Structure formats: structure tokens, C-alpha cells
Simulated scan of single mutants.
Amino acid sequence: MRVLVVHNRYRSGQPSGEDRVVDREVALLAGAGHVVDRFERRSDDIAAMPLPRRAAVPLLVPWNPAVRTELRDHLLATVPDVVHVHNTFPLLSPSVVAACADAGVPLVATLHNYLQVCPSGTLYRDGAACTACVGGSPVPAVRHGCYRGSRVASVPMALNHAVNRRRWWSGVTTFFCISDAQRRVLLDAGMPGGKLVVKHNVVDEPASRRAGPGEHVLFLGRLTVEKGVRLLMTAWDELAAAGGTGLPLVIAGSGPLEDEVRGWAAGRADVRVAGLQDPAGCADLTARATAVVVPSTWLEAFGLVVVEAMAAGVPIVAAGHGAPAELVVDGVTGLLHEPGHAGSLAAALRAAVADPDRNARMGAAARLRYEEAFTPAAGLDALVAGYRSAISPAPGVPV
């Protein structure tokens, strides 16, 4: 097949799981003999724009007519079988949907978050789940400054949500949901169920897998409130007060809470802040972990860290909601804790590392689950099946 991948890459200073997923899928398709073209923009380019053009970027978030024209012309010149769109924010905009309609090319879209039903894409505000805009007006997002804590910055997001939601729902042939947990949320929010197909993200075979019991507990991710970093710090303090786990906590990543995390960890022998890691560094830390902790307080739509831990044969301690509750088989491939509850997280961490034999069994089961469902081969099969369905939908399937 001839496939055009449409994606707005994230800033390089904010490493993105979405970028990794896109690159992995492109490589899988090309390796299987499909012809893959890219139509991309890079958020890094915004900083180099002249000031007037940079100031106009928010105005183009809901609609970028130049992108519509450029993409339509590209489609007419190259004639792909299918277009696969990932992220359109902020430089592409939903005008890509209109361009595909102009050229008569079927369009599939991977939903990496909840932007279809929430202007901020997280269904999360002030430390708790929020559905104020779901199925209705996006005004609450502006009132609460849901995007970057700014009412002004939230206006383009809210406008985009208001004017383009139905365009997406009618113009896309197939939406790839990255977990069934995400699909259920979107279905309840009113998205067309016949277009929502679960296609999990996959990860490559790691360069190394865990050999032995591991040497630390690992948090690997963006240092934000919704990722559960503060919850983890509180839980770790509880563990330390009770004598600790006998293992250090390694925190790898960057984000708005990095200074707070470093301040908390300063002078402690039981915590090490590793900072932002490249892929090789992430893989090494994962392969040396006794357990990987994913204490997210928001409803994760997937969780690449979870699957990467599985691939390395490492058990996971995760919040029991959102996609992690779907990915982790409680008591088999890892342990689930009560979301947002530091005591429950502390107890799960203690249980995950206290019995080496049980930990080894969970790690082996996690690796088996990876082999069954999250390998590149499984991802390629699901991707191609989704494309073929979009190109030639079955009779009676709404498009």
C-alpha cells in the first residue's frame, strides 16, 4: 500500500511518546514493503519564525488554509491509498481532514489522547478527572484555563474543539483507539462507535532484558502532577518512615516538577534523580529495575512505559484506572493500586519487591504478555488490517 503519514512533531525538549509511536509505525510499514510518505510539521520550528508569524500560530490552531491547499496538492500528485493522521497541533490543524476529502483519499486517525472530547486532551483538572466540556460547550476550559493554566492560551483549543469536532467525526473513516479504556470513554462521550477500533501501541524488542532481581524501583516519565510524581514522593516517604524497601527509587525524566523533585531527593540515599534520558538510557534503567511504577492520577490513554517494562520482563506497579488497569493483570504481571491513594501505592510497592520469587514470576508473566500482544509483528498486522478496512469498508459500516 501507499500510505501518507500526517503528523505535527512535538518539541524536542519535551520528548513525546507520540513521536516514538509514529516513527516506529513508519519503520514497520517500510520494512514490510509498503511505500510510506510523510507530511509533517515540527513544533521546534516555531521558535525560529519571525515574531509576527509566531504570534499568529494560535490563530491557525483551529484552521490552517495554507496546509489544506498544500496537503490537497500533495495528495493529488502522489495518490496514496490511505492517509494516517496522528497529531495536528499546532501547525497543521484539522484542515488536513478537509484536504483528504478534497482529494478523495480515505483517512484514519490515531487518538493518542482525549482531544476529541476535551480541549486540553487530558480529561483532568485541578488534580481530578474532569468532564465539564464532554458533549457540550468548551467554555469551561477557557474559564478554568485548562491549557497551560492560561485562559488566553485555552481560547484556540476551545475554538478548535467547538468548530471541528463534528468535522473529525464525519471525515475520518476509522479512529484507532490505543486502548479499550480510551475507547469506552470516547464512546460514552458520543463519538461514533462504528468508527472506533482498538489498536494498541507496540514497542520494539529491547536491547536487553532483566537478568536477576533488579536493583532499583523506577519511575520513568514526564515530571508532572498528572503522572503521579507527587503521589509517588508521598508514598516513598511513607515507605521510608516504615524502614524502606531496601532498594533505591530512581526517577528519570524532566518536566515542570523537576526542581521540586530534585529538592525532595537532595541528600537522600534512597532516591536518585537521573534526569532526562535518551532511549538507550531508558532501556538500560528499565532492564535493571525490580519494578517500574506508573502512579498516574489521570486516565492514561495507553502507557508505553508499561509495555516497555513488560518487554524487559519487569513487573509494573500502576494506578488501577485508565489504560494501565487494562494492560497490567493485577497479581500476575504486576500490581494495581488505588488511584490517587499514597498508602495504597506504598503497599503495592512494598509487595512488589518484598518477595523475590513472586517478583520473578510476575516479570516472566509480563514478558509473556508482551510477546502475545505488543510485539512489532502484532502492531503491523493491526495497522494493515485497519488500513484495508478503511480503504474498502465492509457493507453497512458507516464511513
Score class of each variant (00 low, 15 high):
residue 305 V to S: 04
residue 306 V to S: 11
residue 306 V to Y: 15
residue 307 V to R: 00
residue 307 V to G: 01
residue 308 E to Q: 15
residue 308 E to T: 11
residue 309 A to I: 02
residue 309 A to N: 05
residue 309 A to K: 03
residue 309 A to M: 05
residue 309 A to E: 10
residue 310 M to H: 15
residue 310 M to C: 00
residue 310 M to V: 00
residue 310 M to P: 00
residue 311 A to K: 03
residue 311 A to S: 12
residue 311 A to F: 12
residue 312 A to H: 12
residue 313 G to L: 01
residue 313 G to P: 14
residue 315 P to F: 03
residue 316 I to K: 00
residue 317 V to K: 13
residue 318 A to Q: 11
residue 319 A to Q: 10
residue 319 A to D: 14
residue 320 G to V: 09
residue 320 G to A: 12
residue 322 G to T: 11
residue 323 A to G: 12
residue 323 A to N: 09
residue 324 P to M: 07
residue 324 P to E: 06
residue 324 P to F: 02
residue 324 P to D: 06
residue 326 E to Y: 02
residue 327 L to D: 03
residue 327 L to R: 04
residue 327 L to P: 00
residue 328 V to C: 10
residue 328 V to P: 01
residue 328 V to S: 10
residue 329 V to I: 15
residue 329 V to S: 13
residue 330 D to W: 04
residue 330 D to Q: 08
residue 330 D to P: 05
residue 331 G to S: 06
residue 331 G to T: 06
residue 332 V to P: 08
residue 332 V to F: 00
residue 333 T to F: 01
residue 333 T to N: 04
residue 335 L to Y: 14
residue 336 L to I: 08
residue 336 L to G: 05
residue 336 L to A: 06
residue 337 H to T: 07
residue 337 H to F: 14
residue 338 E to D: 11
residue 339 P to Y: 13
residue 339 P to K: 12
residue 340 G to T: 11
residue 341 H to E: 14
residue 342 A to L: 10
residue 344 S to T: 12
residue 345 L to V: 15
